[in-house]
Design a protein around this nucleic acid. Structure first.
Length: 874
RNA sequence: GGGGGAUUAGCUCAGUUGGCUAGAGCGCCAGAUUUGCAUUCUGGAGGUCAAGGGUUCGACUCCCUUAUUCUCCA
């Protein structure tokens, strides 16, 4: 009886629980508060601060399963996923950790125990790799790890690996160390007899694969490249859950495990195609089933598809799935949204966020699919033009530049361009395309270059103590600092031992202010939070970083921000009261100027609903409810209080709870002492930002007051303008009505005047050689009338040669109109005539052969100009 | 963060080197045809050409700024 994926997940966690590990929740897949990372890409991400020493160690031993997303990296390009049977964008990473507790021996022993003794994998099929050493880093082979492996494996199945495979680094700098990988050979006996397994380890063979990586973190890499031994050593392991399931379920592809088979079955049903019959449709089904998971979980974690950053990555993943479905499975209409139900049935038990937000996920995906299908159809139209042109010019291929423009500007996938081109017996210039692509990449790289110096440590601290909930001024000392350079501009990042400055997080912007010492003031222009580290940004470094500083927060900004933050909580509660409890926060921005709140809701709010929400919030403000704050409440208690929790938010075990009346939220932000301080709350806009997500923008306090006053002022001045009428609206409407009537009259009047002018001109027609000549100076108000006159006369007189001069706003204007037949017969050109005649009024002009105008500076030359124009008839 | 586009009628979009007094299809309204509907035909309404500046005799078109939006790269 094969184990199901659910059982396997449980077995892993149970095993490490027995080994005294604390089992923790998966962190959200979407990372917040870490500028270097958009998505959780490894199990260790949520423990990064503990490795870096920014946060004290909570438990020395931890294990979990972590939702991860990888779209780029050495073995994981988005464009490669689905082609083989074992790479994914989203996957689960099983991991166990030691923070300064056990090290190599236990990690190795337990991995063996779990895989072989507990799960029953044949030990003869396993290989271990150890770090071979590196002369660059002056490191020897990791014989220590090898010696522990020798307890379980014969020496010939313990292989050396190079720095690329067996030395793990978090980034250019930071904690790192050698690692030891476990590989498994899943081939048949006959295959193994032909080629021994050790020759295929780390060779991208689909059936000889790495399943577990044990990282031994023992060094810190500095910016100059050197390695320093860490005082306490850690273990960080990661095992691909999908691969483990594949091994244990005795199949040869991750996609054949129960994790994916349900979804693929549903795709088969919807498309009417079978998995396993055609390579192309198989790839497409794998792509769809993989990407579906990535996108659904990202949305559940609060990341909506959008046009930049993390949102853009999600959009790209979804579009790739649509593209494969479109091309190979014949889906011309949204279909991925229809698979969510199946995904929920498969994974919803372990990840309840899927079920809780199913409706939103489906809506968002459907909307995205539709929008991409539109993009595709415009792209196809553009491509058709390009193909037609290439064919006309008998080109054999479509220029790389065109392919690039289609891709870069219109988002039309290159492979589709190739496909359609080939259908039209054309090739695409791949080389040219790549060149354009490279140029674009280097442009971006140059722009994004960021140089980060080493941290310079002045004094050792465990964690910055945040004082900002109680005070906005404090004596602080700099613990460490570093210089950051971007585009030739540089600034300094400062970390204090303690600080009153609030670092940007939870949608609330960071504090600004200054630090002062010995009469020297250094401005803090922003405060950011990198995971749990509060970083103060300063344009300059204080003369003496070692001294004592007085840190002062800009309180005016802080107070206005607090108004907006508290108002956001009240708004959240009011929305749930008025619209229903399906309202969930999807995004929030709070600064001194205003607040922005995005929430799930499926239709436009009516005017009444908005008014009602606003009224409720203002009622709460008037009630002057005091803040009830609990900074260290156990998570369980907070839950029992009914505190609002957000999907995709990482919470500790002790949380800060902010309560204003019946609004209870887990929140790290700064708030007013009592709601009365907010003064006034005013919603300024309600709009849609995505399918199923609405946005409210609002203002509070002084800004709200100013807003209302401005509106009233406008109203007052209108009232004054309509002479203090009691019924302002009526008066204005009256004015508007009168205005339209008068406009109509003026128009009619103008027409009449034009008619008279026209009749007058017609009476002066001079017939000469069969040409009807009109040459006059006329009195008109604007150039439009002149044009009108010319065109009307053209329509009413044959063989017309019309020259009109006029003075408009003190400037001379000349218009020449010639009947089409005259233009033909006599080869007259109004543009040429007007240019010549224009000289007489010290100006120039031009136009078409039958109609042209000129302007100038000298009105006294008008008669001469008319004469000049006439001379062309001779 | 950087690059490239887009913004024209209610909707989908044309509009060439600056000059056709801004067009098409669908939709809308009216009339005709029809027992009625659909269809068809005829006619009509509907435009601050995203906003603001500039260049020019003349700007939907060129330049600058802003907004919104799409798209690619990091």
């Amino acid at each position: 009886m094969k184990r199901t994926s659910k059982e396997i997940r449980k077995a892993f966690l149970d095993f490490f629980k027995e080994k005294e590990h604390q089992i923790v929740q998966s962190a959200p897949m979407v990372v917040k508060g870490d500028p270097t990372l958009m998505f959780t890409n490894a199990g260790m991400n949520q423990f990064k601060d503990q490795f870096l020493g920014n946060e004290p160690v909570k438990w020395p031993r931890v294990a979990d399963t972590q939702k991860c997303l990888r779209v780029s990296g050495k073995h994981n390009d988005l464009e490669e996923v689905g082609l083989d049977t074992y790479h994914h964008t989203m996957f689960e990473m099983l991991g166990n950790w030691s923070f300064g507790d056990y090290f190599k021996e236990e990690a190795i022993d337990w991995s063996w125990e779990f895989l072989v003794k507990r799960m029953g994998i044949n030990g003869d099929r396993l290989y271990a790799t150890v770090f071979e050493g590196s002369s660059d880093d002056k490191l020897e082979r990791d014989s220590e790890a090898a010696s522990y492996w020798e307890k379980h494996l014969p020496k010939d199945r313990i292989l050396n690996g190079n720095k690329k495979d067996n030395f793990w680094e978090m980034g250019d700098t930071g904690p790192c160390g050698p690692c030891s990988e476990i590989h498994v050979d899943l081939r048949s006996e006959t295959e193994i007899a032909k080629v021994p397994g050790h020759e295929l380890v780390n060779k991208d063979h689909p059936l000889v694969i790495e399943i577990w990586n044990l990282v031994f973190i023992q060094f810190n890499r500095k910016a100059d490249g050197s390695l320093v031994e860490l005082p306490s050593k850690h273990v960080d392991t990661g095992m691909g859950f999908e691969r483990l399931c594949m091994v244990l379920q005795d199949v040869t592809s991750n996609y054949d495990t129960d994790i994916f088979q349900n979804i693929i079955g549903e795709i088969e049903k919807l498309s009417g195609k079978k998995y396993g019959e055609d390579q192309k449709t198989d790839i497409a089904m794998r792509v769809v089933s993989d990407h579906l998971r990535a996108v659904a979980f990202a949305i559940a974690d609060g990341q909506l598809p959008s046009n930049n950053k993390a949102g853009y990555v999600i959009r790209r993943i979804l579009r790739r799935a649509v593209r494969y479905g479109y091309t190979f499975l014949g889906f011309k209409e949204p279909f991925i949204c229809k698979l969510i139900e199946t995904l929920k049935i498969t994974m919803g038990e372990s990840f309840p966020e899927l079920g809780a937000q199913q409706q939103l996920i489906e809506k968002v995906i459907k909307e995205e699919e539709e929008s991409f299908l539109r993009t595709l159809s415009t792209g196809i139209k553009l491509l058709d033009d390009i193909i037609a042109k290439s064919k006309k010019e008998k080109e054999a291929q479509i220029p790389g530049k065109d392919v690039f423009v289609l891709y870069d500007t219109f988002g039309f996938p290159v492979d589709l361009t190739g496909l359609i081109a080939r259908e039209n017996e054309l090739e695409i210039d791949t080389e040219g395309f790549q060149k354009e692509m490279e140029a674009q990449k280097s442009r971006s790289r140059n722009a994004a270059q960021l140089e980060t110096g080493d941290w310079i440590e002045i004094r050792k601290i465990d964690q910055t103590i945040f004082l900002g909930y109680d005070t906005t001024e404090a004596d602080v000392r700099i613990a460490r600092y570093r210089k950051v350079t971007q585009k030739k501009k540089s600034y300094y990042q400062l970390v204090f031992d303690q600080t009153p400055f609030y670092g940007e997080s939870g949608g609330q912007v960071g504090d600004t202010g200054y630090i002062e010492s010995d009469g020297e003031k250094v401005t803090i222009f922003d405060t950011q939070k990198e995971n749990n580290l509060i970083v103060h940004l300063a344009k300059a470094l204080p003369a003496n970083p070692e001294s004592h500083f007085r840190a002062v927060v800009n309180t005016e900004k802080r107070l206005e921000t607090a108004n907006n933050h508290t108002a956001t909580h009240l708004l959240h509660a009011a929305l749930r009261e008025v619209l229903g409890t399906h309202v969930e926060q999807k995004g929030s921005l709070v600064n001194a100027d205003h607040l922005r709140f995005d929430f799930s809701h499926f239709q436009k709010m009516t005017e009444e609903e908005i008014e009602k929400v606003e009224a409720i919030v203002n009622e709460k403000i008037r009630a002057n409810t005091p803040r009830e704050e609990n900074r260290e409440m156990p998570m369980e208690d907070a839950k029992n209080m009914g505190a609002m929790m957000l999907f995709g938010e990482k919470y500790g075990d002790a949380v800060r709870v902010i309560k204003f009346g019946d609004s209870v939220e887990l929140c790290g932000g700064t708030h007013v002492a009592a709601t009365g301080q907010i003064g006034l709350f005013k919603i300024v806009s309600e709009s849609a930002i995505a399918a199923g997500v609405r946005r409210i923008e609002a203002i509070t306090g002084r800004r709200a007051e100013k807003y209302v006053n401005d509106q009233l002022k406008t109203l007052d001045s209108i009232r004054e303008t309509v002479k203090g009428s009691k019924d302002i609206l009526g008066s204005v409407m009256n004015l508007l009505r009168e205005n339209t009537e008068l406009s109509k009259k003026i128009e009619a009047f103008g027409r009449d005047r034009l008619k008279i002018l026209k009749a007058n001109l017609k009476s002066k027609v001079l017939l000469e050689n069969g040409v009807n000549i009109i040459a006059e100076k006329v009195d008109v108000d604007n150039a439009g009338m002149l044009k009108d006159l010319a065109f009307q006369l053209k329509g009413e007189a044959d063989n017309l040669f019309l020259v009109l001069g006029a003075e408009i706003n003190g400037k001379p204007n000349l218009t020449v109109m010639i009947s089409d037949e005259l233009v033909e017969e006599k080869e007259l050109n109004a543009g040429q005539i007007v240019r010549e005649a224009g000289k007489e009024i010290k100006g120039g002009g031009g136009g078409q052969p039958f109609y042209a105008t000129a302007g100038g500076k000298d009105p006294s030359g008008i008669p001469a100009a008319i004469e000049k124009a006439l001379s062309f008839l001779q």
